[in-house]
Design a binder for these strands. Structure first.
Lengths: 236, 236
DNA sequence: CGCCGCTTGTGAGCACGTGAACAAGCGGCG
DNA sequence: CGCCGCTTGTTCACGTGCTCACAAGCGGCG
C-alpha cells in the first residue's frame, strides 16, 4: 500500500456478510492459540471456521494486510487486531429484559460474561419477578431502565419478553440510550436507523429446517396421517 | 390462463433467502387472521413482516399465484398454502441434547410445541442429569438415541451441549436417522450434505452488535448523554 | 357493457457476495 | 546472492438476491 496515512483510518467499509463471519474466525483463532500455533494459514483457518480459504483471505484483507506471504497469519496478532475491530477490547454491559424461561436461562448462562458481555442488569414488568435475584443480580422493574442504563453504562439490550411487550421494551431501551438490541421475541421490532437490531427466533429456525425436511420427501413412512395436498382455487 | 403443468409445486426451486422469510410471513398472516381480515395486500403484509412490498410479492410468487389482482391475498388460504409448503401440516418431533442452562430453558419453553415442534425426548451424557424429569419428560442417556429416535419418529435434533461434545452428539443424531439439526453450541459441526444444519450462536450475535456499536464512534466516556447519531448501522 | 382504479406477478437492471485463478512477495536453502 | 516453494492479497467472472417499474388482470361502478 503506497498511501501510508490510510492505515489508522477506519473508513474501510466491511461488508455485512464479512462482519458476521469475523466472530467465527476469532473463535477459531482462539482454538489455534490454545494449540500453541504461532502462525496459521488461510487454509487451516478455513478448516477451523467452516468456510473456504479464498473467503477467509478476502475477509481478512478487509481488516488490513496482517498476513505474511509464504508463512500465514500471526495468530496472536491477528487475534488482537480482530478483537479491536470487533470492539472486544473492552466489556460491553448488557441488560436482559424479560425473565421468563428464556431470559432466565440467558441470565444464568455464563457464556456472555466470559466473552466480554457481562450481564449488568435484569428488568421485568411482572411484580412477582421484580425483586428476585438471578445469578447474583437483582431483578428491577422495567420502569427504572433509564436509571439502570446510566448507572451501569449499558450498551446492549436483550429482549426476551413475550412478543406483545417487545416493541414497548425496545422503545424504553432506546430512550435509555441503548443503541444495540438483540431481540428474541417472535415479532417485528422497529427501531430508528441509528440503532442496531438483530433478531433470533428459535421457532423460525425450526420452521426453516422443516421446509427442507419436507422437501426431502418426508412422505416415506407416514408417522401420523397422510397429508392430502388439496388444490383449491383461491377464495373459491 | 392455460394451466398445463401448473401443479408441479415441488419443481419450483425456492431461493434460500426466500425460505428464511416464509416463517415471518406466516407469523404475520396469523396476526392478520387474528384481526379478522379476510384478505391482505402485499403492502400491508410487508409492514407486518418488516420487509418491502416488492420482496413480499416476489417471495409469494415462488409459492404460486395465490393472490387476486386488485384485491390482495386471501389470508386463510395463503396461510394454508404456506404452512403446507413449510411442512407444518404435521408435527415434527424434536429431541434436545444437552440439558445445561440453555437446554433446560429450551425444554421448558412452551413455544416449540405450540408451533408444531413438540419436544419428544431429552438426552444428556451426565449421569447426574439422566433420570431427572423436565417439563414432564424424562432425561435419557445419549447412548439410547437410536432407540429414542425409532420410538418417537424424531425428525429434528437440537444440540445444546458444550462445544466439546457437539460434533459427537451430531454424529450420534445422524446415525439415529435425524436429518435436521439446530446447533446452539459455539463450534463448527460437520454434517453430510443430505443433512440440514442451522446454527445459532448467541455470543456471535452480540459480537456482531459490538462491531457496529464500536464503529458508531464509541468513545463512550459521555454515556449519560445520548450519543450523536452517526450513520451506517444495519437495521432489520 | 365498457371503463377505471387497484394490486398482483414478473422482467430487467443493479448491487452484493462467492469462488477460482494468479501475480506479488516473503523466507529459506544451496 | 540468487533461486524456489509457499501463501497471501487481489482481480475477474459468475451467481444470487434485491429493487424498480410496469403490463396484466380482477372487481366495481356508472
Amino acid at each position: 500500500m503506497a498511501d501510508g496515512t490510510k492505515r489508522q483510518r477506519q473508513a474501510r467499509k466491511i461488508p455485512e456478510a464479512t462482519v458476521a463471519r469475523l466472530p467465527i474466525y476469532l473463535r477459531s483463532l482462539l482454538e489455534a492459540a490454545g494449540d500453541g500455533l504461532p502462525t496459521i494459514s488461510s487454509e487451516r483457518l478455513a478448516e477451523l471456521s467452516g468456510f473456504n480459504a479464498a473467503k477467509v483471505r478476502k475477509d481478512l484483507s478487509y481488516l488490513g494486510s496482517y498476513g505474511t506471504r509464504g508463512v500465514g497469519y500471526d495468530v496472536e496478532y491477528l487475534q488482537f487486531q480482530m478483537s479491536r475491530e470487533l470492539g472486544l477490547t473492552k466489556d460491553w454491559h448488557v441488560v436482559i429484559a424479560g425473565l421468563g424461561n428464556l431470559g432466565h436461562a440467558l441470565a444464568n448462562y455464563g457464556g456472555f460474561g466470559d466473552r466480554g458481555f457481562p450481564v449488568a442488569a435484569l428488568v421485568d414488568a411482572d411484580p412477582r419477578v421484580v425483586g428476585t435475584e438471578i445469578n447474583g443480580i437483582a431483578v428491577r422493574h422495567v420502569d427504572e431502565l433509564g436509571d439502570i442504563a446510566a448507572e451501569h453504562h449499558i450498551a446492549i439490550g436483550i429482549i426476551a419478553t413475550p412478543a406483545s411487550a417487545a416493541q414497548d421494551v425496545a422503545d424504553r431501551l432506546i430512550a435509555a440510550g441503548v443503541s444495540s438490541i438483540l431481540n428474541f421475541a417472535p415479532t417485528i421490532v422497529s427501531v430508528p436507523p441509528e440503532v442496531s437490531l438483530r433478531k433470533v427466533d428459535l421457532a423460525v429456525e425450526l420452521q426453516i429446517l422443516s421446509f427442507y425436511q419436507q422437501r426431502r420427501g418426508a412422505d416415506a413412512r407416514t408417522a401420523s396421517l397422510p397429508p392430502e395436498p388439496a388444490a383449491m382455487p383461491p377464495a373459491g
